[in-house]
Structures are given as structure tokens and as C-alpha cells.
Design a binder for these strands. Structure first.
Lengths: 159, 159
DNA sequence: TGACAAAGTTAGCTATACCTAACTATACTG
DNA sequence: CAGTATAGTTAGGTATAGCTAACTTTGTCA
């Protein structure tokens, strides 16, 4: 097996990995400053996290340099991003939540769901999409269902 | 407004609240020992958490006594339990995940999802249930859809 | 090229949430 | 009702994850 077994990462470190991955296009890797901005943490917190990621063999980073992911780090990052995208899609495309809200919720939930549920969720999205092609649009039908009920509830409410 | 505004609780404290709530039937409130067992933490960790919950006005607890929830604490606990149940139902009844797995996933995810998504999820479950009454069982149909694809994938695989 | 701004690091602090070990209070039981 | 087992607490320690402030390094440009 690999050098270090893929020990479970904290939600926080997964977030760093995801951020580095998403900033990686920028010439030669991600900048610490941008990671901090993306995650809304202090620059010094990034320095600390990078040290941990390097120790775990997931990131490459020499002082004052750009950050890149190792193969292993990139594999983990891709998995996080995949979860993120699946959740966002489910929240937005199936449940009909506003994209921005869906994004943020996905970012928080992505660390808590295992492969079994993520797999089924992906499958479910595909099923809903397929339903659209088969002439019955489940997502659209649900929006109506939800909208109707929501309207009923809210009618006459001040707050 | 109330004495203390309903400041956001940590996932951990929400878990304690939920455990206390679920153990509350037992004569005169929950026992520290049982809370520890339910959450899989040391008894001393419970003592610490109870102190925090009391400080926040969510639990009642005098040393060596049983633990009960205040009105406010019970309200929060009910909301956590509600989320938990909605998620469990979605994972199990819609996605078709084994109940035990669904339970555990719900327990982890329940702290990360806000009212908007929880509300829609509840609505979606109702929609799926209603679909069953209307002659098209979405949950059952999805199980077939997922099962078919899963079978294809796994066919011939050793692991 | 030298000064200054921006980026990155270090040191030290805080808070959460656990733990173990040792102690104390309570409850049960012969 | 005394002794022991069980439950609960306290003290002190660890790990994570963040922060600010002060410092160093790097890069830019007049």
C-alpha cells in the first residue's frame, strides 16, 4: 500500500485541500493569501494547515512558495470536490434551492457524508434527470408541490 | 426577547441536547452515565458539557442529580431531533439506504443543514410519499434504477 | 538600488472538545 | 449500617483550529 494510509482528514483540512485544488490553475500553484481569502481565515492559519498537509504527504510547499498538491492530495481533493458538486446539484437541481445557498450548504455537509450516501445521491440525481427525458420532470413537479404548500403556509404571515 | 438569545450551538452540544432529550423518559431526567454511553464519550466529558448547557440556560443539572432540559433546551432539542428524523427518512425511505446507516449519517449531517434545506427535504419526502399514493412510487422506481446501475458496475468485480 | 508594500511566517494566546487518573458522593446489599 | 460498587466530579493533559501582533522575506518601482 501507499506510504501513509489515507487516514481520515478533518473537515478543516479537507477544506484547505479543496481550496488549493480550486486555486491550482493560477501559475505554479495556489497562493497562501488566496487560500486564506477563499476560506475566510487568517493567513497564519493557512501556514499552520499547510504544514499539516505537507506532513501528511498531501501538499508540497516550501516557505514563501506556491502550494501544490501531491498526487495523493489531489486524489483526496477531487473526491471532496466531487461530493461538493453532487450535493450542490442535489440541493439546487432537485430540491430547487438557490444555487448560492446550495453551494454553501454543500460545503458544510460534504465532510459528513460517506460514499454510500453520496453514491446514492448521485444516482438519484441521474434518476431525476432521466425522469425529465422520460416525459415526467420530477424536479419540476416537486417545485410545484413545494411551492403550493409553501404558499399555503405563508399566506397571511407577517414574518 | 428571551434572557439569552438562541446563540448558535456547536454540533457537539447539539448532540448532548439530543441525547438528553432521548433519555428524558427515564424517571426524573437523563443520567450522565447514559448520556456518555449514548454519545460514546467519557463520563467526565458529559460533566463538562452539562456545565456549558446549564450556563446557556438549556439544561438543569445539580451535581450528582439527573439532567433535564429547560423549555428553551427542549425546543432546541426538538429541532435537532426533527432534522435527524427528516434526514434519516430521506436517506432510508427515499434513497433506500439501510436504516442503521441512515441513522448514523443523519446524526453527522443534521448539524450542518439549515432550515431552508431541511424544509425542502421534508417537503420532498412528502412529495415522494404522495407519488406512491398517486400510483407512481418514486422511491421504489429509484431503487430499481439504482439497483440496475449498481449491478452493472459490480458485475465481475472481486472487490 | 533602496525603500516600501505585500505576502508569508512565527510566537503566543484562546476556545472547544475530548481524554485519563484520582477523588468524592450515592446507592445497594449482606 | 458498614462496606463496596457505581456514578459523578475534578484536575490536568492533548489535539485541533482558529486568532492577533510582530517579525521576515519577497517583489515592485521610482
Amino acid at each position: 500500500m501507499g506510504t501513509e494510509r489515507t487516514q481520515k482528514l478533518s473537515a478543516s483540512l479537507e477544506d484547505y485541500l479543496e481550496a488549493i485544488f480550486n486555486l491550482a490553475d493560477d501559475a505554479g500553484g495556489a497562493r497562501s493569501k488566496d487560500i486564506a481569502a477563499m476560506l475566510g481565515v487568517a493567513r497564519s492559519s493557512v501556514t499552520g494547515a499547510l504544514q499539516l498537509l505537507c506532513d501528511k504527504g498531501l501538499a508540497n510547499h516550501e516557505p514563501y512558495g506556491r502550494v501544490t498538491l501531491t498526487q495523493q492530495g489531489e486524489a483526496v481533493a477531487r473526491e471532496v470536490v466531487r461530493k461538493h458538486d453532487i450535493l450542490t446539484s442535489f440541493f439546487a437541481d432537485v430540491l430547487g434551492v438557490e444555487r448560492e445557498t446550495a453551494q454553501r450548504a454543500a460545503c458544510r455537509a460534504e465532510h459528513t457524508l460517506g460514499p454510500e450516501i453520496i453514491g446514492r445521491l448521485l444516482s438519484f440525481i441521474d434518476y431525476v434527470v432521466a425522469s425529465g427525458r422520460d416525459g415526467r420532470d420530477i424536479a419540476g413537479e416537486f417545485r410545484l408541490f413545494h411551492g403550493r404548500r409553501f404558499t399555503k403556509r405563508v399566506k397571511g404571515m407577517v414574518k
